[in-house]
Design a protein around this nucleic acid. Sequence first.
DNA 1: GGTTTGACCCGTT
DNA 2: CAACGGGCCAAAC
Length: 109
Amino acid sequence: MTQKAPFFARVYRLVAQIPEGKVATYGQLAALAGQPRAARTVGWAMQGAPRELDLPCHRVVNAIGTLSPPLVFGGAGVQRELLENEGIRFLEDGRIDLGASLWDGPIAE
DNA sequence: GGTTTGACCCGTT
DNA sequence: CAACGGGCCAAAC
């Protein structure tokens, strides 16, 4: 496939493949993109992710299932509502139940 | 081509 | 338990 595509493009494509009711971690996306240690770069990709791509960045969470700074999504609780609306389970801690909602990864390509 | 940064991750203090 | 620091990687300046 488009292995020539820059790291960003891969991350964007992966994020775009995240189905509803599932979430992916930065480290997971980084690993799928070919750089298991590039979780930070994934976050950076999100930072520059254009809305035109319809990227469900709200489905991308950190390794423990906590959400990113709400400011990024336009307000506190916004990201959580989006996720809950898609069927994501939240724990009492305010974290996502990764055990039940973690994305299986790209089925095939 | 070196420096800075970032929506991270992990261990230690 | 909270705070701090270092490490990691890729893109932007």
